[in-house]
Amino acid sequence: MDLSIRETRTTNGQKNIILSIFSFLRQNKSFTVGMFILSIIVIMALFADFLAPYGYAERSGDRYEAPSQDHPFGTTLLGFDVLSRVIYGSQVALIIAFSGTILSLSLGVPLGIISGYFGGKIDRLFTLIADSIYSFPSLLLAITLAIYLSVFGVLKVVSAVAVATSVVYIPTYFRVVRSQVLQIKEEGYVKAARSMGAKRITILIRYIAPNVLASTIAIIPFNMTDAILTNAGLAFLGLGISPPTADWGYDVYDSRALVKVRAYPWLILFPGLMIFLLSFSLSLIGDALNDKFNPLISQKNAK
């Protein structure tokens, strides 16, 4: 990504950064397709009030109406419009994906920087904790946290699921960032800054943090995918967001019985498809970024 942007800039001047973004998009089809699907879902979430024909918990039809002109995706047991629930569900899914990711980033990255930079006892303690959380089965951790957070009522249920999924990812950021910091702190410019008497906090924030953040970029989309899938998994185990909030995971859970799937396939098909599309678009983006940032894959032979 870096290379292509720099090349266009030198030949065409500063203002053609848009052109260089286009050239990057043309080279990375999976990135482009992923971004396209993702932006449609984001638009759905932002303008849900205008796009949805009915409210997500509004009795707008009879029970189990098959897809028709009035209800393109059919209706549920309570007569809710499935299309509207699918559209509103994108809000919940994106909130969980984004808040979960921000939460784990904002804990994992600073802890990784501190651990890697200061070393010693802090480092050993943090690494031990991170490693044990890392080897703990993530769904179990999420299950436990989801039970408590939802029962306590301290947090709203949406954020409970986000917290549960984000805790699992903190060690991933921690590990990557820590190993990066270990490398970067031996670089010449950091040593130079230190020799000139720069404060520790300045070195951390101005010299180390920006260089470390690049290594986390490729993890973020996968983190979001896992947040969505864990949320769906929790919902499937009956621990997800409680109705009547529109949540794809809950809608799938509610219509999972085979008898129901056979009789009213639209109930599971559309929310299931949306979970797939959102995770798929994020994974496509993540995969493209991984190819760019993975140190094992060199760029010289890539088209």
């Binding site: 999976s30 995918t225 899938l229 769906a232 499937f236 085979l258 799937v261 995770s279 994974s283 995969d287």
Partner: peptide
């Protein structure tokens, strides 16, 4: 690549339900 990303993106219980169907 599409297959591996796709299969990762479908919740496994949906894979199961659709296979059964």
């Amino acid at each position: 690549r599409l297959f591996t990303i796709g299969i990762y993106s479908i919740p496994i219980f949906l894979v199961g339900i659709f296979m059964q169907m």
